[in-house]
Amino acid sequence: MGFDREALREAVKTHGKVVRVVIAGIKGSSPREVGASMLVWKDEQSGTIGGGTLEYQAAEAARRQSKPSRLSQHALGPDLGQCCGGAVSLLSEIYDSASLTHIEGTVVARPVTQECEKDDPLDTQVQPMAVKRVLARSRAQGVAPEPQLIEGWMIEPIHEPTRNIWIWGAGHVGRSLVDVLSPLPDLAITWVDTGPERFPSSIPSGVTAVPAAKPAELVRHAPPEAEHLVLTYSHNLDLELCNRLLLHDFRFAGLIGSATKWARFRSRLAALGHLPARIGRITCPIGDPDLGKHPQMIAVGVAAQLLRPARQNELKKDLSA
Rank of each mutant, 00 (worst) to 15 (best):
M1Y: 06
F3Y: 06
E10L: 14
E10I: 14
T14L: 15
V18S: 00
V22P: 00
V22W: 08
I23K: 04
I23Y: 04
S29G: 07
S30P: 02
A36R: 06
K42H: 08
D43P: 02
E44W: 12
S46N: 11
S46I: 12
T48Q: 09
I49C: 07
G51V: 06
S66Y: 10
K67E: 15
Q73D: 14
H74I: 03
L76T: 01
D79C: 11
L80S: 03
C83P: 03
L90E: 00
Y95Q: 02
S99L: 04
T101L: 15
E104T: 11
R110E: 15
K118S: 12
P121N: 03
Q125S: 15
V126W: 10
A130H: 00
K132A: 13
R133P: 01
V134K: 02
A136H: 10
S138R: 01
R139H: 09
Q148N: 09
E156W: 08
P161T: 01
W168K: 02
G169N: 03
G169I: 00
H172S: 04
V178L: 03
V178D: 05
D179L: 08
V180D: 03
V180Y: 04
S182V: 04
T194K: 08
F199N: 10
P200N: 05
T208P: 01
T208W: 06
V210C: 09
P211G: 10
L218Q: 05
L218R: 02
H221N: 14
P223S: 12
P223N: 08
P224K: 14
A226E: 11
L241N: 07
C242F: 12
N243P: 15
R251L: 12
R251F: 11
R251N: 13
A253M: 11
G257M: 00
K261Q: 06
F265G: 10
F265N: 12
R266G: 13
R266M: 14
S267H: 13
R268K: 12
G273F: 03
I279D: 13
P285S: 02
H294Y: 13
P295H: 06
M297V: 13
G301C: 01
A303G: 04
A304M: 09
Q305T: 07
A310H: 13
E314I: 11
